[in-house]
Design a protein around this nucleic acid. Structure first.
Lengths: 342, 342
DNA sequence: GTGAAAGCGCTAACAC
DNA sequence: GTGTTAGCGCTTTCAC
């Protein structure tokens, strides 16, 4: 087998516990012994065994990352890689490893999470989605297992849960108000999957803005689509078939907006002249469309980074009580919105 | 602490070893005892501890996934999430967990890999990139640690390494020949980072096709860019500044092609009428650009899936000898190429 | 068919 | 300061 602490101990003429202490750089060990032991480690090419350590420490220094079940959709959207980028950055700094979930369906995911928790593969979990009626959330809560949600809880007492989110309601309200100020009154809303809490929030913000402006909500102006690209296109077909077409659109996601743009282009509806557009996320590509998208930068990277930060705190500090963190967003005006002339 | 095998043993009035055998579903245990033990497990809510198991089995049932150091770039490109999707799918089927690397620089990555290997955190490693002069590859080879490369090895004896790749040389040759057949003679090449083996391969294929057609290679028609989106745009500026502009372009990546398209649009150069374009990867968005991209589908998902399959084989079957797998590509003709008229 | 006991590699009391 | 020892939770000989 490989080199163990005992081999090093023998080589350095000390006890295994001394070697262990040298690894931990205990102040109770003399400088001289430390050097002797380190030398022996180097000579033998010793490296501590993580499993043995985890076993006795009851800690794995590993964080579980749960990706939404609709992996196909999740992975398509730049949101996911970007949030993962924030997570890996912080995890590296904190010297935590990352353990990825692999399930594809809700059930598989739940099973995976249970395994992670029960078999103690990870010290905490970071949930990359917030879904309505999610099963994982209540499970983790009940188990009292450290976890952080990217997004906000729903259908469960908010107070019990640690999460990192944007104020998506306010963001949606802001962009809708912006369109209102530009003179638009017929504003369509293309939401994402209704299972996602963010969709609910966007809708709420949109609704509030219209209510404040005394513009009645119209059912035919509100649609929801799961698939970002195709959804955007279908939504356009739907809206353009109406007798009273909207003159502006609030779109759940930049990618969806790209689909919208594409379909509008095919229909020879000019953006922004005939249709204004504002979307969310500010993914890398949104600057590159023609015209470049007016969008809301929700700082995805920071969601991941702060989420990981919170989880690490939660794991290591029993008194940590900062339940939620709200990441600020930035409204990015580019070229898909214009003043309504008529 | 939590429920251990001993608790179950007590509850079921058997020895711990018997419980262990029941977990492994050993045929040497009577049906009756099995049921008794399983009942006790259920009653107590027992779940095996992974670390303890890994420690004695010397196996973690976990695969390490190494993402290229330039994470920012890597994560931006849909290649990465898509290959990960293939990996997770297969890993789930094989009941392997996934352990993600978190380093940002080459050095950090190397350290991470060393940790994974030395501390036995994973049973095998899957490398998501193939770079020229990579440090990880020789390390893993030297350690004789099971690993699979997505891409092809470079600067090291090919024969020693397990890998999954496309025939990128042939793919590049094919698309170049396609452009030649359309009557183009001034064909530009926009490659990715020269550190990447795939860039070398694309270049080689491009070169071969031109040579076969007796068209001399022109240095000014060959450029390389790291950043996919910006690179595409800068390349266009470069090419359009030439006295003899190319009439067609081979572009390393769809995202880059999107940047090219954008810049061409700004310059009011019509695609495909004034400039033909063919790129690689067939990412989701490539169908949505205007015009939709003619591209090569390299089956990214399958690269990940087969890579994982190969790694699992390699880990579990000492006699496994299928060093390499070539994933077929498909040439997807859409609307960015047209016959050269003049 | 089942139990006793050793041991995977490490840490942490507890000694001295 | 350093050594001795028990034990983390599991598997696996070796008995019987």
């Amino acid at each position: 087998m490989s080199i163990t602490i005992k081999d090093v101990a023998k080589r350095a003429n000390v006890a295994p516990s001394t070697v262990s202490r040298v690894i931990a750089d205990s102040p109770r060990i003399s400088q001289q012994t430390k050097e002797k032991v380190r030398e022996a480690m180097a000579e033998l090419g010793y490296h501590p065994n993580y499993n043995a350590r985890s076993l006795v420490n009851q800690s794995t220094k590993t964080l579980g990352v749960i990706i939404p079940s609709s992996a196909k959709i999740a992975f398509q959207n730049p949101f996911f890689p970007e949030v993962l980028r924030g997570i890996t950055a912080k995890a590296y700094l904190e010297k935590y490893g990352l353990y990825l979930s692999t399930g594809q369906t809700d059930q598989e995911i739940l099973e995976e999470v249970k395994q992670m928790v029960y078999s103690r593969r990870v010290d905490g979990i970071i949930l990359l989605y917030s879904k309505v009626n999610d099963l994982v959330l209540p499970f983790l809560t009940e188990q009292n297992f450290p976890f952080v949600l990217i997004g906000r809880p729903h259908g469960i007492e908010d107070e019990a849960i640690y999460y990192v989110n944007n104020d998506n309601v306010r963001a949606a309200k802001t962009v809708t108000e912006y369109l209102l100020l530009l003179g638009h009154e017929r504003i369509g809303f293309i939401g994402g999957n209704l299972d996602q809490v963010v969709t609910l929030d966007h809708k709420l913000g949109y609704q509030k803005a219209l209510e404040n402006a005394n513009i009645p909500l119209r059912d035919e102006y509100i649609v929801y689509y799961d698939e970002v690209l195709e959804g955007g296109q279908e939504a356009v077909i739907e809206f353009m078939s109406l007798e009273e077409r909207p003159t502006a659109l609030v779109v759940a996601d930049d990618l969806m907006a790209l689909g919208v743009l594409r379909m509008l282009d095919e229909m020879e509806v000019s953006v922004p002249d005939e249709m204004s557009l504002v979307s969310f996320n500010n993914v890398m590509l949104s600057e590159l469309s023609s015209p470049p998208l007016t969008t809301v930068d929700i700082n995805i990277y920071e969601l991941g980074f702060q989420g990981t930060d919170k989880l690490v705190h939660l794991i290591n500090d029993a008194n940590y009580e900062e339940k939620k963190t709200i990441i600020p967003y930035r409204f990015i005006k580019r070229q898909t919105c214009i003043k309504r002339t008529k």
